[in-house]
Structure formats: C-alpha cells, structure tokens
Simulated scan of single mutants.
Amino acid sequence: MKRISANRSVLLLLALVLMSFNTAQKKIKIYLVGDSTMAQKAKNKYPETGWGVPFTWFFNQNAEVDNRAQNGRSTQSFINEGRWKAILDSLKADDYVLVQFGHNDEVPTKKSATTPSQFQENLKRYVNETRAKKANPVLITPVARRKFDGGKVVDTHKEYAELVRNVARELNVPLIDLNERSLSLLQNFGEDKSKLLFLQLAERQNPNYPKGVEDNTHFSELGARYMAELVVQELKGIKSPLTSYIVGN
C-alpha cells in the first residue's frame, strides 16, 4: 500500500510539473515608439526623464521593454530615418508596439511636422504593419504639456489627440488616452504644484543646468513615473492581455 501511495505521489508531482510547463508565460517584447516625452535621455540631460524609462519597472521577467523612442521625432521622421524598419525587422508574433506621437507632428514650423492627413496615414501604417507581423499595436494619445490659463489646464494637443482616437476607432486598435489622463493629473496638481512633474530647475540647482531651466514639455523623474503609472492603469482599464505581464497583477 505504501508503495502504491508513493507512486501516486510521484505521478501527481510529475503532472504538476508538466502543467507548469504548459502554462508557462511566453516571453515577449514591448516596443515603445515615440518622441522625447517617452525616450531615454543622455546622462548630461538628467534629471529629464521620459516616461518610457520607469514604465519598464512595472513588468515581470517575461516582458522586455525595448524603448526605441527618440527626441524630436514625428510619425514621419521616425519612418524616414529607418527606425521603424529596424523594429519591424525584429518584431515577432505576440510582441507589442506602443505608439505615441504628436508633439513634433503638430508644430507646422518644425521639419518633422505632418499634416493631419499624413499623421493619420502614418499611424495606420504602424498599426497595419505591426499586425502583419502578428504582433499587437496600441495607440497612445500625446501626453499633455503643462499649460494653464486662469488656473485651468489647456489642451495643447486637442486636434492631434483626436486624430489618434479616430484611427483607433477606425482600425479597432486598443487606445490609451494619455492626453486626457495627463490633463486630469495636471489639473489635480494645480498650476504651481504641477511644476514638480516637469523639468523645472532654478539657477545652479543642478550641474547639468547651471543657468536653470523651465521646461513645460519634458518630465522630471517624478513626472515620468506618474505618466508611466497612468499608462499602466490604462492598460488595466482596457483589459489588455499585456496586463498579465505586470508585476503583482
């Protein structure tokens, strides 16, 4: 009897081991495609921080976050420079591509600018080419700038954020409305306290910025973390399968 019981225990243990292999989480990559508000920064730009940097901290060992965002890029210049092709060449089935542009597309005086029509067509290209690789696109509206008028936060991305929403609806793409969420965050912080979220330094406060800096577009470490948290919350809110890779989920 003891021998039979022992054999059953061994078989049960073996079954559990096999089940663990069968349910093991697939390793994936999460590519971040966008501009300076998302990008990693050079050491001499510290404490400026893109939200894509703390975003990596929220995922387990089976999800590698590959931040390809670059300062000053638009939907078009990112393609023109071959940066998108480099991602496509390495993109695998079940990977994720999170796309956030707008800051440099919407300013007509910039070389990187795109018309509303070009912007939408470029976003569609990112979505369709990602899907052709059997990977998963996620569109993100541009994160808010810090601008207030009479104590009320101003939406500086109104047109281009809506274009992102339009493409997401048309192509049935998961959408993270970071513009809306970050505007609410800034309003809650208020005009003065919200400075803490951005690259705002007094003269001689930081050796990288001896003359000080007043930047209402790029984030401090604190601001980048808050924005990354908003993106993670939104992923959970839209019930993205990607949330299964979030630590503690």
Rank of each mutant, 00 (worst) to 15 (best):
residue 99 V to Q: 04
residue 88 L to P: 09
residue 237 G to P: 03
residue 39 A to I: 02
residue 6 A to I: 14
residue 74 S to P: 15
residue 172 N to E: 13
residue 202 A to V: 09
residue 79 I to A: 11
residue 5 S to T: 11
residue 29 K to R: 13
residue 104 N to A: 06
residue 14 L to M: 11
residue 111 K to S: 14
residue 137 P to N: 10
residue 33 V to I: 14
residue 133 K to D: 10
residue 215 D to S: 07
residue 121 E to N: 08
residue 197 L to G: 02
residue 98 L to D: 00
residue 198 F to G: 04
residue 75 T to I: 08
residue 227 M to K: 01
residue 3 R to A: 14
residue 247 V to A: 12
residue 20 S to H: 06
residue 94 D to L: 02
residue 45 K to T: 13
residue 140 I to H: 00
residue 127 V to Y: 00
residue 5 S to W: 09
residue 132 A to N: 14
residue 82 G to C: 09
residue 124 K to P: 12
residue 222 L to Y: 07
residue 206 N to P: 08
residue 24 A to F: 12
residue 208 N to H: 11
residue 230 L to R: 01
residue 119 F to H: 08
residue 227 M to D: 02
residue 52 G to T: 05
residue 207 P to Q: 06
residue 100 Q to G: 11
residue 214 E to S: 10
residue 119 F to P: 04
residue 69 A to D: 04
residue 145 R to Q: 11
residue 225 R to Q: 12
residue 14 L to P: 00
residue 165 R to W: 02
residue 54 P to G: 08
residue 156 T to G: 04
residue 32 L to W: 00
residue 2 K to R: 09
residue 146 R to F: 10
residue 223 G to K: 02
residue 15 A to C: 13
residue 112 S to W: 01
residue 190 G to Q: 03
residue 16 L to D: 06
residue 89 D to C: 09
residue 245 Y to N: 02
residue 22 N to K: 03
residue 218 H to P: 12
residue 221 E to M: 01
residue 215 D to L: 03
residue 4 I to K: 07
residue 10 V to T: 12
residue 149 D to Q: 12
residue 46 Y to N: 09
residue 16 L to W: 04
residue 37 T to F: 05
residue 207 P to L: 07
residue 39 A to S: 15
residue 158 K to E: 15
residue 28 I to W: 01
residue 28 I to T: 05
residue 206 N to Y: 10
residue 32 L to S: 06
residue 197 L to S: 04
residue 138 V to Q: 05
residue 4 I to H: 08
residue 48 E to Q: 14
residue 248 G to C: 07
residue 81 E to T: 13
residue 246 I to S: 05
residue 157 H to Q: 09
residue 93 A to P: 02
residue 19 M to A: 14
residue 31 Y to Q: 05
residue 191 E to V: 02
residue 132 A to M: 10
residue 200 Q to L: 09
residue 128 N to K: 09
residue 88 L to Q: 15
residue 179 N to T: 08
residue 41 K to P: 04
residue 83 R to K: 15
residue 91 L to E: 14
residue 3 R to C: 11
residue 159 E to Y: 00
residue 220 S to E: 07
residue 26 K to V: 14
residue 232 V to H: 01
residue 131 R to V: 03
residue 244 S to I: 06
residue 219 F to Y: 12
residue 14 L to T: 06
residue 156 T to E: 10
residue 32 L to I: 15
residue 184 S to M: 08
residue 153 V to W: 00
residue 9 S to T: 11
residue 184 S to E: 15
residue 46 Y to C: 03
residue 207 P to D: 11
residue 150 G to E: 08
residue 230 L to C: 02
residue 64 E to N: 07
residue 196 L to H: 05
residue 234 E to R: 00
residue 203 E to K: 12
residue 136 N to H: 14
residue 8 R to E: 13
residue 90 S to T: 15
residue 43 K to Q: 13
residue 222 L to G: 02
residue 177 D to W: 00
residue 107 V to R: 06
